[in-house]
């Protein structure tokens, strides 16, 4: 039991952080905060991956003369790619936010939903 707690502790921390980010994404009303939450969510997944790549007593995966044990380079490569994907998504999301702000005058989700419903109402009146 103790063995598994020690062995899995790192993953649990990563999972906790992931969930904190995930919560920020789905619970907050502000769009910028959602994007920040999304970033935290993704960054924590990166921590999970990098933890997978660590080897006991290993050193960074750059070949040098007197080192035998290296950490696993593959997760590092994957995460490099994923970080880039993350920043690309962030950039696009932020530019969407700017446009939303200009179109709706607000970046709160509830305001936007309200504005859309107000737009629908006149059409329903016409129908009646």
């Amino acid at each position: 039991m103790i063995d598994s707690i020690v062995g899995l502790y790192n993953y649990w921390i990563a999972i906790f952080l992931m969930m904190a980010g995930f919560y920020t994404v789905i619970a907050s009303d502000n769009l910028v905060k959602k994007i920040v939450g999304l970033n935290i969510f993704q960054t924590s997944v990166f921590i999970l991956y990098i933890s997978l790549g660590k080897v006991e007593g290993g050193s960074p995966p750059i070949v040098s003369a007197n080192i035998d044990v290296y950490s696993n380079p593959l997760p590092h490569v994957l995460i490099l790619t994923a970080i880039v994907v993350g920043v690309a998504t962030t950039a696009l999301g932020l530019s969407l936010i700017i446009r939303i702000k200009k179109a709706y005058g607000s970046v709160e989700e509830s305001d936007i939903i309200e504005a859309d419903q107000q737009m629908l109402e006149p059409t329903q009146d016409e129908k009646q």
């Binding site: 995930f22 994404v25 769009l31 959602k34 999304l38 969510f41 993704q42 997944v45 998504t89 696009l92 999301g93 969407l96 936010i97 446009r99 939303i100 179109a103 709706y104 936007i112 859309d116 737009m119």
Partner: peptide, 19 residues
């Protein structure tokens, strides 16, 4: 302008899915 809001919604949900 609703296209922007729905695109953002899709961006959030899609990224969660991808993650």
């Amino acid at each position: 302008r609703r296209a922007l809001a729905s695109s953002f919604q899709y961006l959030i949900m899609g990224t969660i899915g991808a993650t």
